[in-house]
Structures are given as structure tokens and as C-alpha cells.
Amino acid sequence: MSTVPVPYRVLSSRPETPDCVSLTLAADGATLPAFAPGQFAMVYAFGVGEVPISVSVVGDGTVTFTVRAVGAVSAALCKLAPGETLGLRGPFGSGWNLDAADGSDVLVVAGGLGLAPLRPAVHRLLGRAARLAVLVGTRTPADLLFPGELAGWREQCRVEVTVDRPTPQWRGSVGVVTALLDRVAVGAETATALVCGPEVMMRHTADALHARGVPPGRVQLSLERNMRCGTGHCGHCQLGPLLLCRDGPVVDCAVSRQLLSVREL
């Protein structure tokens, strides 16, 4: 783990949606330790600022981050071209506990950009989970991340996609992602669920999983707060007793569910 930004060079910049870009990076000198699925880096756009972004692909000597242009720093990152350099600190935080998913049924539930942090987990789980289902909710068909890759996953596991706002051409599901839970058969008591998306979506998904018999201890949520230092010192990312940059971002629902219901945390 590095606490000072290490220069990484942009190998490729791939537009994913109208406002999302995947940046594939390689070290431009010193190399950071390998990222585990679910961990994040503080990504520094030189002269602009630093934002936390979860790893989207863990490659051989490369690392990919999928960035949505929502603010000054992320917009600057999205504009980076191949050959340009940014700074990385990390890897930070806890990743997905994939050992808990070994040999069990696994539900991966993603909302919007939440598919990006789950993507490397799916890469590891394909062929490893007893049964794997990937459920994705997104705003419109144009906002769906990695559609080509989802098509490939469909050959190896169950993949369901639903949108909030269909276009006239859309022939798939319409509605919230939790509605897809009824469509997959899982051994509820032994299933593991990995969930990432807007916090309200995760809260409702956790409740829907619980209602279907999945124990909270087998539901992992990737939480987000205002990560700054990444090392558990500054306290910006505090959620009750947790410092999410250190104790998260992936937190067992048995620990986090109650905290998510507390206002002002």
C-alpha cells in the first residue's frame, strides 16, 4: 500500500457509456501491490484532485478503473488520453470475501455504476461458485456498463438486466433490480450475495434478500463515504464505528445494515 501517489500511465481509455470511461493503467516506474476485487485506489488527476475509485479489472501488470464524470476530478480523469499519467495510491480497504462464496450459490446484485467494483469479483467467481447469477439494474439501456462482457458471462452463468427507463427498442426487463430476485433459484440459507450500487438500492436489496431467507452475514455490501486518506486516519469516511477506507468498503451486512438505517451517519 502506498500513501503517496505513484505515477501510472494510461494504456487505454474506453468509453463505456455517455459519461463513463474505463482507464486501463500500467505502472510508470514503481508498481503498487496487486489489487483484490472490491478494493479501491485514490486516483489523482494531477493539479485537480484525488478521488476514491474501486478497481474494475485486475489485469496482469495492469489495472482498470471505470470512472463516471460527475465532478471536477472524475471529469478530468475521463478526459485522460493514452500516454498521459495520473497518480495512484492504494490498494485500500477490504475486498469482496470470495472465499465465503467458494462452492456456494452466489448472487451478484449491481445497481448502475456498482457493476464496476463487482466486475473483478465476477471474473474470479466464474467457474468457482456452485451457481452464479448476476443481476444488474441500470437507468436506461444506454447506461448499461460492459454489455459485451455481460453477453459473454451469459454463456457461463445467469445474467439478468433490468432498466428503470426503457427505450421503445428495449426488449428486456423493466423495473427495480430487486424484482429480479424472484427469478433466480438459490439455496437461500447457504447463498452468498455481493451487492454494490446506490446506498438506497443496497438497503432495499439487503432487505429483499433477507426476506427471501439469505442470512445478513452472507450479504456483502460495498459502501461509500467520503474517503480521503485511505489509511483510516482522517475520519472522513466514518460510518458509526467503521472507517470505511480501512474497515470497508466491503462490509458484511450483519454489521452494516443497522448503521445504514441511522440518520446522519
Binding site: V70, G111, V176, P198
Partner: peptide
């Protein structure tokens, strides 16, 4: 509840 959640437009930028 699903309709209410969609009203919030959670996945908007």
C-alpha cells in the same frame, strides 16, 4: 415501493 424507488432516479448522475 419499486415505483417509488424509481421516482427517486437513484442511478442519475
Amino acid at each position: 415501493q419499486a415505483a417509488r424507488l424509481r421516482l427517486v432516479d437513484l442511478y442519475a448522475p
